[in-house]
Simulated scan of single mutants.
Amino acid sequence: MYFESLDALLNMAGHGPYVWSCYGLFVALLGINIWHARSQNLKALKQAKALVRRNQ
């Protein structure tokens, strides 16, 4: 195993806070991106359904 202990994995020779904050920011931004895409998709579907209802 690369790290000798869990503490060594989290600390990463003093670079741990930077590394883990970057991972956290990446996961947060990925989640926001997925949430935004889904909400835009639902909004577009609602608009398309309303348009179809108006044209019938």
Rank of each mutant, 00 (worst) to 15 (best):
H15P: 05
G16H: 11
L9H: 07
N11G: 06
A13Q: 10
Q40M: 15
V19D: 01
A44N: 07
R54I: 10
Y2M: 10
R38S: 01
Y2D: 10
W35G: 09
K43G: 00
A44G: 09
N41D: 06
K49M: 13
Y23L: 10
K49T: 03
K46Y: 15
N33D: 04
K43W: 10
Q40V: 09
R38M: 06
G24M: 07
Y23T: 06
K46F: 13
A28P: 00
L25H: 14
A28L: 14
H15M: 14
G14L: 09
N55R: 04
A48L: 12
A8H: 13
A37L: 05
L29Y: 04
F26Q: 02
C22N: 06
F3W: 04
M1E: 11
Q56P: 00
Y18R: 14
L42Q: 11
A28Y: 03
L6G: 12
N33L: 04
H36M: 12
L25G: 13
L51M: 06
A48R: 13
S39V: 01
R54G: 01
D7G: 13
V52L: 11
A37P: 02
R38Y: 01
G14I: 12
H15K: 15
L51I: 00
A50S: 14
P17V: 13
S5D: 03
W35C: 04
I32Y: 03
F3H: 12
H15I: 07
E4Q: 14
I34N: 00
Q40K: 14
Q47C: 04
L30R: 08
M1N: 12
M12P: 06
S39T: 11
V27Q: 08
F3M: 05
G24K: 13
A28C: 06
Q47Y: 02
S21L: 06
L45Q: 15
G24F: 04
I34G: 01
G24H: 08
R38D: 07
R54M: 15
G24Q: 11
Q56Y: 07
I32P: 00
L9W: 02
R38P: 03
K46W: 14
G16C: 04
I32T: 02
D7Y: 01
A8W: 02
A37Y: 10
K46S: 12
L51A: 12
A37T: 06
E4C: 07
L51T: 11
V52M: 06
C22Y: 02
L29F: 01
Q56R: 14
E4D: 13
P17G: 11
L30M: 11
